[in-house]
């Protein structure tokens, strides 16, 4: 996982739970990186899983909600890291369509070692879309958080139904994203 994800995670902890929490998590997890993250490097996926697990214990919150919450937090951090000219989408739907074909492509250009998921708009409905998610990391909840936050940034909050999920044995996830009437 890219360092940017870790630095954003660290910031989220510091913002929400304070620096002591971050120190406590690091101490608990005893990570190979020692918790020294920079955005340009890449770190073992296990580190983020350990950190999220430790946070769950620390905060008494189930892992899934934490991951989704982190997705919401992460969105701004990621969006701001791009040159502003690349984030000029008129609405949520055009942004979602651009994630796989433009945004993650840019990410991979910048970091050839990045491993972005497959996120494709497979169906368009009157008031929403169906997203297809596929990744060995099975971090669909992170995607849900990211999409929620993206929707808010356009001022159009959405509901997301997880109609099938990789964590339940499917070969991909389907996310039905719809405007709230």
């Amino acid at each position: 996982m890219k360092g940017a994800v870790f630095t954003n995670f660290q910031e989220m902890i510091e913002d929400e739970f304070g620096m002591e929490c971050w120190e406590a998590l690091l101490e608990k997890c005893d990570l190979p990186s020692g918790g020294i993250y920079t955005s340009a490097s890449t770190y073992d996926d296990q580190e983020i899983l350990s950190l999220v697990g430790a946070l769950s214990e620390y905060s008494n919150t189930p892992v899934p909600s934490l991951v989704e919450a982190f997705g919401r937090y992460l969105y701004d951090g990621l969006a701001n890291s791009l040159p502003p000219s690349m984030m000029t989408y008129p609405d949520l739907w055009s942004l979602l369509e651009a994630v796989d074909s433009v945004i993650h492509v840019e990410v991979n250009k910048l970091y050839p070692d990045a491993l972005t998921p497959k996120i494709i708009v497979t169906e368009k409905h009157d008031n929403g879309v169906t997203l297809y998610y596929q990744s060995p990391r099975k971090m669909c909840l992170l995607a849900i958080g990211l999409v929620h936050k993206a929707a808010e940034s356009f001022g159009t909050p959405v509901t997301i139904q997880h109609t099938c999920c990789m964590n339940e044995g499917a070969d991909h996830c389907s996310l039905l994203v719809e405007y709230i009437e």
């Binding site: 250009k109 910048l110 970091y111």
Partner: peptide, 21 residues
Amino acid sequence: ARKNAESVLEKKSRELHFTNL
């Protein structure tokens, strides 16, 4: 300072990418 350094790095990285390309 670290964040600035990272963004400078990213910019360089992007330039490098285009040069590479």
